[in-house]
Design a protein around this nucleic acid. Structure first.
Length: 128
DNA sequence: AGCCTGACTTTGT
DNA sequence: GACAAAGCCAGGC
């Protein structure tokens, strides 16, 4: 398991205390990202306490389209605001399209006004 | 049990 | 700014 003390949401996330996998935790956090906002792989990794495993977050997204409820995977970009995961959408343009529909400005596969749109779980999900 | 692969990030040139 | 290298670690083979 990947449970750490620095996980304010663990209680609610673990509601069904079965075996909560790293993937599940990633998915649940991604589902909390509000429309029109984005976060990064690293931000999610840090929030989960596995700060240097951003790649695992991205890797978890590979199966994102296979689980329900649906996961707004298009709201996860890299730390520079680049739509690095676009190639995994079908079609690839749908990632940008979905973000645009939510009011996010995209230029050259990069989120504009990134700092304003960025949603950091570590600060947004601070202790209730 | 090893070896390889990343929807990544940080650090150092 | 660009670029390279290294750390990361679960799955698949």
């Amino acid at each position: 398991m990947f449970v750490t003390k620095s996980m304010p949401l663990m209680n609610s996330l673990q509601a069904h205390d079965k075996d909560v996998s790293f993937f599940d935790l990633v998915y649940q956090i991604v589902r909390l990202i509000p429309a029109g906002r984005v976060t990064s792989y690293g931000a999610i990794a840090r929030y989960l306490g596995t700060g240097r495993s951003a790649r695992m977050v991205g890797w978890a997204m590979n199966n994102a389209h296979t689980v329900l409820p649906e996961i707004p995977a298009h709201r996860v970009v890299n730390r520079n605001g680049l739509l690095s995961g676009r190639a995994h959408f079908k079609p690839p343009e749908s990632m940008e399209q979905k973000l645009v529909e939510e009011g996010v400005f995209i230029k050259d596969n990069q989120v504009q006004f990134f700092n304003d749109v960025f949603w950091d779980p570590a600060t947004e999900l601070k202790i209730n």
